[in-house]
Simulated scan of single mutants.
Amino acid sequence: MAARSASKPRRKDADELPGRARVLQAAFSAFIENGYAQTSTLEIATRARVSKRELYALVGNKQEMLVACIRERATRLQAPADLPRPRDRETLASVLTTFGTQLVREISDPVVVAVFRLAIAEATRTPEVARALDSIGRETTRAALHGIMAEAHARGLLGGRPAEMVERFNGLLWGDLMVGLLLGTTDPPAPHERARDATAAFLRLYAPPDNAATAR
């Protein structure tokens, strides 16, 4: 009796979720546990405690559900709204370290890694899913980084093309870490330490324009 009464609040909490959120939660859990191809809309509807008609009305078909799951988690990859403007090299270092820390922490999260694995597994049969992950997730971070690099360049803090600097910073931040995370052969790193080291290496490579000209 005690076990049954202890489980009631959890069921009630799930029931109180808005219908769309409940469907997406159920869909994501099923996709991760069973794989996209092996998950049926009937199973998702059963988990979400809605009819199949409600399922389609709330979210759409199975592919739309997966894209919505990706989109929901990609919001965690946006630059923090309270990042300061890069006024000098010290502030720029703080901005890049803070944003890099968030990226490493969020993308190393097992749930986010599972999303990447799912998109890779479906890339051949459902390329729209991989494109959604690329455009919603990766492009979100690239756009945010490009904004930081462009402003730092405009203020004379960095010598280099913003697009090139985005790729270089990402390379220093990630290296082959993502491959190890996807394969399950690498443990998630300490986010702040990794971001701090990547930022320091990046700033050594990209001096202010005057210094860069002197170095040449």
Rank of each mutant, 00 (worst) to 15 (best):
R161E: 14
M178D: 00
L182C: 01
R131A: 15
A163K: 08
M178K: 03
A123S: 15
V129S: 14
L173S: 02
D187C: 05
T126F: 14
G156I: 07
F169D: 00
L157S: 06
G137Q: 05
G156V: 06
G180Y: 00
E122M: 09
A144H: 07
R138M: 12
D176N: 09
A144S: 13
L172H: 02
E128N: 13
R142V: 11
L177I: 02
T141G: 08
A130T: 12
R155A: 12
G160F: 04
R168M: 08
H146P: 08
H146G: 13
V166A: 07
E139W: 11
L177C: 01
R138F: 14
W174T: 04
P162M: 06
L145Y: 03
M165G: 08
N170V: 06
I136E: 14
I148R: 08
T124N: 14
G184K: 01
L182H: 00
L183A: 10
A121G: 09
T141F: 11
R131T: 13
M149Y: 05
L181I: 00
L182Y: 04
T141P: 06
R125S: 15
M149Q: 05
R125G: 15
R155H: 10
D134H: 12
G160L: 06
I136C: 14
L183E: 11
G160M: 06
E128D: 15
A150S: 14
D187V: 08
E167L: 12
D187H: 09
A130K: 10
L157F: 07
L172D: 01
A144M: 03
L181P: 00
